[in-house]
């Protein structure tokens, strides 16, 4: 009895957020199956996985930044810019497509590095820096195009709708990114330094940990993931559009925090984020099945977020 209790305490204390999220996923699924016979089908499950790809990739990038104790609010504009550049540069040409993909990946990484650099050297809080760079990127996007632009070669939408072993291609790719990030965070020294930096920036620096390098890597990765997400978005949407990423700025943060990563940094992980993404996508899908108007959907979303995050207790807090 006591051992069960202690396991429970251990779980809720150490992994409370994650357990809550998995529990909520389970409850929502059960609820959905009861409410609609079309909800629990294989094709609907595949739908949800397929739909969650861009959000998952962006949120995985955001997770690293948040573990350092920072935040990236430029991510939405980065996705928009990358999406218009991708389809604009490609313009239907399969060869240019590869050039465009490399370009946006490099650009994404570079923007991340600029974000990190500005917050390190100007000593401005990342929230403000990335808000500023976000505005600048949006302006550049509008300079480049004010309308949806370009197109992708035929068959590019297979990236969004294709299947590998019956699973959506995007979902498989998401898992790959997830595993790589998880291994990096746990097994590679630099990955572990990300936690140390977020936990106690001054302490980490005193111990001689490469704080700047850590920040460059985290923000660079986040920017690059925004570019990757834009590839899947363009595959799904057919062309890049100047406001396509706008929603990701805030939606990319919710799964991270719901998944148990603290905004104050130092704790959390990508598994929670991934589950958070699936929870959010599942919730959106389920609300469609309920024929609830958006008005009530917003109320439900707000409540679920509050429930999910107030279950576990944070030891310290910051922005």
């Amino acid at each position: 009895m006591t051992s069960v209790a202690s396991i429970f305490t251990f779980l809720t204390k150490r992994r409370g957020g994650l357990l809550t999220v998995i529990g909520l996923i389970f409850v929502l699924t059960l609820f959905g199956v009861i409410v609609s016979d079309k909800f629990g089908t294989y094709s609907n499950a595949v739908n949800i996985l397929e739909q969650s790809t861009p959000l998952a990739i962006v949120s995985l990038g955001q997770t690293l930044v948040i573990i350092t104790g920072g935040i990236d609010l430029s991510i939405g504009s980065m996705v928009s810019l990358a999406s218009v550049l991708l389809s604009g540069l490609t313009a239907g040409d399969p060869v240019m497509m590869y050039v465009a993909i490399v370009t946006i990946l490099v650009l994404g990484g570079l923007v991340g590095i600029i974000n990190a650099g500005a917050s390190i050297y100007l000593r401005v809080h990342p929230l403000i820096v990335t808000l500023g760079t976000g505005a600048i990127l949006q302006g550049i996007t509008l300079l480049y195009t004010q309308t949806p632009i370009g197109k992708m070669p035929k068959g590019f939408d297979e990236l969004a709708y294709g299947r590998v072993l019956g699973l959506p291609l995007g979902a498989v790719f998401t898992i790959v990114v997830f595993v790589v990030t998880a291994v990096f965070l746990r097994k590679v020294p630099l990955g572990r330094y990300i936690y140390a930096t977020g936990d106690d920036a001054v302490g980490a620096q005193l111990m001689g940990l490469p704080r700047r390098k850590v920040l460059f890597v985290a923000y660079g990765f986040c920017g690059m993931m925004a570019a990757v997400a834009s590839i899947f978005l363009v595959a799904r949407l057919g062309a890049g559009q100047p406001y396509t990423g706008q929603n990701f700025t805030l939606t990319s943060i919710t799964p991270v925090v719901v998944g148990g990563t603290l905004l104050s940094g130092g704790r959390g992980g990508v598994i929670g984020t991934l589950m958070g993404v699936y929870l959010v996508s599942l919730l959106n899908n389920l609300l469609n099945f309920l024929s609830l108007s958006t008005h009530y959907q917003l109320i439900v979303q707000g409540l679920i977020v509050i429930i999910a995050v107030s279950v576990y207790v944070e030891n310290k807090r910051k922005v």
Partner: peptide, 11 residues
């Protein structure tokens, strides 16, 4: 509930 201000006010 120790919810981070960002998320609490977002919710």
């Amino acid at each position: 509930r120790n919810v981070s201000p960002f998320l609490a006010t977002l919710a």
